[in-house]
């Protein structure tokens, strides 16, 4: 417990300073107190929503969509990356097209996905998974195609099979590229889920709670939900970062 407190101390101190500054701004009436409520009212709403189970359904809905999008998107993204790396003709045909699509803001594809999948969670998940696939397949395929000559030469001389070369050499060397893609999709997927929940008539989700709070002028709730979304995003990035450190420690320390 002491160790945990010591770990959290600098973090808590910084948060404390931010809250003090926030309270000072509020107390000195330096801004519109309706749109910029006191930290106390926001925090009490935050704990009320979280521990009072008021938004449990929405929280679970968002987390479910996030989980499914990331899982489906990652699996298909990696598989597509392997396929692109393996077939040069496919790579040379698909890569420039995929690169073009990557430049299109995902939100611009809302109407198209809405037409294809209709209203509801499936559209949210489909759009987020699509972005995952796009943002993962390209770095994975590039990473696989750029396996070092010496790494391949060693495997060839030691008579390794093509499967061994793929899994034990090429994929391992492509892991740093994969994690670059994963860090990008982790943040991007959460953004898309929240935004699609806000604007594609979702029946539940933190995005819907945000829009509802803004329509009813429940400003402390608005801030509280933003904090919850922020915690989810931060935790997701932290998780990816920790997995990356443990999986490719050899790359970060080279």
């Amino acid at each position: 417990m002491t160790g945990l407190l010591r770990l959290l101390k600098p973090f808590l101190l910084r948060i404390g300073l931010v809250l003090l500054a926030w309270q000072a701004v509020f107390s000195l009436l330096l801004t519109n107190t309706l749109l910029f409520p006191s930290p106390l009212s926001v925090l009490s709403r935050f704990f009320e929503l979280l521990f009072g189970m008021q938004i449990l359904g929405s929280l679970l809905s968002t987390l479910f969509k996030l989980g499914v999008s990331l899982s489906v998107g990652s699996v298909f993204g990696i598989l597509l990356g392997v396929a692109l790396a393996h077939w040069t003709l496919l790579y040379e045909t698909v890569f420039p097209i995929a690169d073009f699509f990557r430049s299109i803001p995902a939100t611009a594809l809302f109407p198209l996905f809405l037409l294809v999948f209709g209203l509801g969670d499936v559209t949210n998940i489909a759009l987020s998974a699509w972005v995952c696939i796009l943002y993962l397949s390209l770095p994975v395929s590039k990473g696989l195609r750029e396996t070092k000559e010496t790494s391949l030469a060693i495997a060839i001389v030691f008579k390794k099979s093509n499967l061994d070369i793929l899994f034990k050499v090429k994929l391992m060397e492509a892991l740093p590229a994969l994690f670059i893609g994963l860090r990008t999709v982790a943040s991007l997927t959460l953004v898309l889920i929240i935004v699609t929940e806000m604007f594609i008539g979702a029946s539940s989700g933190l995005g819907k709670e945000l829009i509802d709070a803004s329509y009813t002028y429940d400003i402390p709730k608005l801030y509280a939900i933003i904090m919850i979304v922020g915690i989810i995003g931060y935790s997701l990035n932290l998780l990816v970062s920790e997995i990356e450190k443990k999986t490719i420690h050899w790359h970060t320390k080279q």
């Binding site: 070092k148 000559e149 010496t150 790494s151 030469a153 060693i154 001389v157 030691f158 008579k159 034990k168 050499v169 391992m172 892991l175 490719i248 050899w250 790359h251 080279q254």
Partner: peptide, 25 residues
């Protein structure tokens, strides 16, 4: 069966394997 020891600058060991795993490869 040929024992190949490549140039050092090319990355002669797989960085994700420790010494014993590199040899066992």
């Amino acid at each position: 069966r040929i024992g190949y020891v490549p140039q050092h600058t090319g990355g002669i060991l797989y960085p994700w394997l420790n010494a014993v795993e590199n040899i066992a490869f």
